[in-house]
Computed example of a mutant assay.
Amino acid sequence: QATSIDAVLKDAGLESKIMEVPKKSGDVTKNNNDLTNDLLQPIRKTRDNILHKEHILQDRSAECDMDIQIILTEGKMTAKVLAIMEKYKATSSNMMEVANPSCCGDGDKTRRNKRKTLKEVLLHNKCQELNEICYDIKCIAPRYTVLPSPEDGMFHANVRFTCPGYDMSITGGPHQTPDGARCSAAANLITELHKKAAEEEQQEDDANIPS
């Protein structure tokens, strides 16, 4: 009889352990997700800070290219050339501000103090919207290239979006500022992503239609 009771208790204990496995497995999965998020946060913050500096330097390098072309095109000391020369008197101090980590997230003081139009704000939000899309689908944020167009005095940007299953490169419309050109490219990419999502949804619907 004792042996029978011991066997029952042993089986009950074994069943209890078996029942605990899914719970522990779920806890491990949850802990792993939390750990992954904790690891990603400082890396994302570091990358965002680096890209913020990169965007400022990219904007200014594009502006330099534009100003160089204007000076070469004018070929003499015109009002435009004099205005450019005046602007570059403060170049050294501005570059030091870019190199200072405390400026990350704030941007250039002149740009901060300048009141933006509603159109500019809405356009700028497209960059943030694209970043959030990348975050939601667990992809890295996009990369931008900004170039000047001396012919029309505008800036043009290209955005590269790379993610498992996606590899897209889109050009934005012309804009008066490098930042505006960058966000125009982001807006065009968001439009293309919506189109691609609609196409994938249509393909899934077609696949589910009984033959």
Rank of each mutant, 00 (worst) to 15 (best):
K119P: 01
Y88T: 04
E15G: 07
P101W: 04
A7F: 14
D6L: 15
S16L: 15
A79Y: 11
C134H: 03
V21C: 08
N208S: 13
H194A: 14
C127Q: 01
T29M: 09
G180V: 00
F161W: 08
S169D: 09
I70R: 09
R47S: 13
E201M: 09
D6A: 15
A185I: 01
Y144V: 02
S93T: 10
A207I: 06
T29Y: 07
K196L: 14
P164T: 06
T177G: 02
C103R: 05
T91A: 13
A2T: 15
A79D: 15
Q203E: 13
V98D: 07
V28H: 05
S149P: 02
I137E: 11
H156D: 02
V121I: 14
M85C: 10
G172T: 01
L123D: 01
G26E: 13
I70W: 03
G105V: 06
A99G: 05
E129M: 04
H194G: 05
L123S: 00
S92P: 00
D108P: 02
M77I: 15
K30A: 13
S149L: 10
K30W: 04
G13T: 12
H194N: 11
L122V: 08
L40V: 05
K80L: 12
G26I: 07
I70F: 05
S211L: 10
M85K: 09
Q1C: 05
M19R: 13
C183L: 01
H124F: 09
L189F: 02
P178L: 00
I133R: 02
E192P: 02
K30Q: 09
P150K: 01
L39T: 13
M96Y: 08
T73M: 13
A83C: 06
A90F: 09
D106E: 09
D152A: 03
E86M: 07
E86D: 14
H194R: 15
K87G: 03
N94C: 04
E97I: 08
L14E: 15
V121Y: 05
F161Q: 03
L118W: 06
R60M: 15
P142S: 06
N113H: 07
D48H: 06
P150R: 02
K30G: 08
D136N: 11
F161T: 03
K89Y: 03
I5N: 05
N100P: 04
P148V: 02
G75E: 10
M154H: 02
D6N: 15
R182A: 01
A62H: 01
R160N: 10
A2L: 14
K114T: 14
R182L: 00
A12I: 15
L123Q: 00
V21E: 11
R44Q: 13
D206L: 05
A12C: 15
